[in-house]
Nucleic acid binder design. Sequence first.
RNA 1: GUGCCCGUGGCGCAACGGUAGCGCAAGGGACUUUUAAUCCCUGGGUUGUGGGUUCGAAUCCCACCGGGCACACCA
Length: 477
Amino acid sequence: MDKRRRLLANGPPPYGGRFERTHTAGEILDRFPELEGSSVRIAGRLRSIRRQGKVTFADLQDGGRRIQLFCRVNTMGEAAYGLLDDLDIGDIVGVAGQVMRTRTGQESVEVTGIELLTKSLRPLPEKWHGLKDVELRYRQRYVDLIVNPGVRDVFVARSKAVAAIRRFLTERGFLEVETPMLNPIPGGANARPFITHHNALDMDLYMRIAPELYLKRLLVGGFDKVFEIGKNFRNEGISTKHNPEYTAVEVYEAYADARDMMRLTEELFAYVAAEVTGGTVITFQGTRIDLTPPWPRLSMTEAVARYTGVDFDAIATDEQARAAARSKGVEVDKQATRGKVLAEMFEELVEPHLIQPVFIVDYPVEVSPLAKRKDDDPGLTDRFEPYINGWEVANGFSELNDPVDQRERFLRQLEQRAAGDEEAHMMDEDFLRALEVGMPPAGGLGIGVDRLVMLLTDSPSIRDVILFPHMRPRDLV
RNA sequence: GUGCCCGUGGCGCAACGGUAGCGCAAGGGACUUUUAAUCCCUGGGUUGUGGGUUCGAAUCCCACCGGGCACACCA
């Protein structure tokens, strides 16, 4: 702060304006042989300063790259060289100089002029251990991004992944749309919503938990291939795999079904992986995962049989199903139906084994209120979820377009709601009206973008791929 | 929500019942090819908050606040 006062007293304000750059640090480093000897103007943040009397070295960080500055009183003159005394690590400067190598061969810029563009009033964290405190890394992501190498790369990769998803779908003729995040009725998922209030209308609104029901209305309206990338909000616990607001992409295609959506899913994952990592085989926390299509398809019943030895084809009643669950140590509700028990046993006993990509198909109708029933088995739906690394990374199905069946499903959900299930769906009469107008048969798909990015960037926590993860507010010191 | 662990100068760490210390960063000085530059000197902490035990607490106990991990919840 004293320095700030001195700078304000003695010269131009330490918060400059436009600075004409000719190159970035990365460009100079990448094209060094070609640029050696030429004049450049660069800008960035000082990360270290090594003063040696009449010669000073400094490292300038720009766009995640670092280049050395070499300052000599002979080249700069006494007056300009003297300005270096007021510079601190963390300051943002603009530099003019010549690209050169030092005696030791270090790529550098020999400074002829330097200009303080922004004074840093707070010291940066320790220079070779960086910022380790996870809480501070998330709360002060701006500092984390400056001092911890690799953090920046994760978010560059995230941007590439989202761009790749958008390109993949757009090139296949899907139309990107935006639907409301403030919903009078939250739908499209089993989840507890955030509630907010609209003052002018004096009504409560819900933050959306999924865009599904709006996107299906667009199918009714004649948009055959649509997608939306955006945030969903779920009022639930926080964990290494859950953030209250997270990013999903949802895709709908008229006249397609679950099989088409599975092909789309595996191709999309492979495409995005290749765009971000350069290949379709990735390593997550030491485990090799091969995303190359096609991925195997496995029915939930087969999966449970394979990993638990319990054959649901031989189980006819809810009571038998509950007994089977108990025999494997899985607690289920006393009212749980056969389908619910199957899904519970799957989640508890099978999911952790599904490391390599696999599509689990044929979900019980009880846990899939928006999916079309299978023709040959009305107790099951034509639904799939791909699993990778034990995580559910997407969800899709042949969409239920029978308004009468859909109304029945909503009524079942309302019963569950009345029984205390706060995550059960609400009735959405306007959505039913849309189905009554007529929705073409369609396949739908939702992908958790954060989890996809975690896989592609080898990040063990969802908070590593979200710039500003949710934290309890805390008083600043 | 439950369990376990963590909280010491701006940052990274030590001291684990007996005077709170080290490194980086900061301030002053020397130094014309350093890159964890080096050398000399200086300042900075009522140890997350509040209570308790004790002659004495950063250290032991309780509560609260914040965080991490696991579980629960959850597509």
